[in-house]
Nucleic acid binder design. Structure first.
Lengths: 161, 161
DNA sequence: CATGTCGTTCAGCGTATTCCGAACGTACTG
DNA sequence: CAGTACGTTCGGAATACGCTGAACGACATG
């Protein structure tokens, strides 16, 4: 009835495939994420990741660093243990997802510059670019409230549980 | 005062850089998008794109096809003209951006499968994966209303203008 | 001080991707 | 039926990327 090692590994593989296709992450990085989501215990050393995922130390080192930078994974240290443990960082995950959504509006820096270039052109000429820019401006104004609502809701739900 | 050819080309280059970094599109595909956003007239033939962007016919052919498939660009045909023209598709752009946002929740298919694997494990063991899955479930429930509000707002603004 | 463990960094190999030129298909024209 | 204009598709070259092994540094232990 309990989950088997193979099932967990296959799950990690599925997660890896998703992040590869949808977020452009390297395969191994996705495997680390997937495995950390389902492994027992939740904290894993680099050595354990190397062995269970069949990747090199080098790859694990770089992917854990990137995941920590992205905020999806955090370092854990244990007194009297020289090794460092890695585990999923729930808080960082929320921030990361919203960051990913917000990244869509990064193009506004470029579009606004284009908008200035067309400042003295006819409205008809400007319309094409402005329509697109307006879409991203709308996104930029709507995403922060969305995050705020999520925080608020999580606060209440957490209290109720 | 009017925008120069070089300025427009540089703008296209900036757009290309953005799409390359943020969406993983090939450089040339991004150039096509950028140029179509700012060129005059708004419709351009493949031949024109080849010449102004300095790319091969082959590259323009594949990138325009992909952009049409993504919905960002549409084909325009002119009576008595064998050539096909390409131009930015505003409608498709909105759909594409929301599609991109919604893609974030594609991971739910995988996470739900993992959730089943842990169905008979202790709540403490399940919490890690469930917390993450809940985040994406929340996203999945919030994104469609966001799109609906956008549509509604656009309808009103369009009427007022 | 030698030895072992843990982790990072770097050069290089193998693979995938991007882009082009060339060949081809299609359709219009003299 | 040649001769063009227009566009797509197909190898192949150049390039970028992922991953590894090996060398290295830091730190603890015998």
């Amino acid at each position: 009835m309990a989950i088997t090692h193979d099932e967990a590994l296959r799950f990690a593989e599925d997660v890896a495939l998703y992040f590869e296709q949808d977020a452009g992450l390297p395969r191994i990085t996705g495997r680390v994420i997937g495995w950390l989501l389902i492994c027992e215990p939740s904290e894993q050393t680099a050595g354990q990741l190397v062995e269970t995922l069949g990747a090199s130390k080098a790859s694990i080192s770089t992917s854990t660093r990137q995941l920590m930078q992205a905020g999806l994974v955090e370092k854990v240290s244990v007194p009297g243990d020289r090794r460092t443990y890695y585990r999923i960082n729930d808080e960082g995950w929320v921030a990361s997802v919203f960051e990913r959504l917000a990244a869509v509006t990064n193009i506004l820096k470029v579009l606004d510059k284009g908008s200035e270039l067309l400042a003295h052109e006819s409205p008809a000429r400007r319309a094409r670019l402005e329509n697109v820019a307006d879409l991203y401006r709308w996104m930029q104004s709507e995403l922060p409230p969305l995050l705020a609502r999520h925080r608020e809701q999580r606060l209440h739900d957490g209290g109720e549980k």
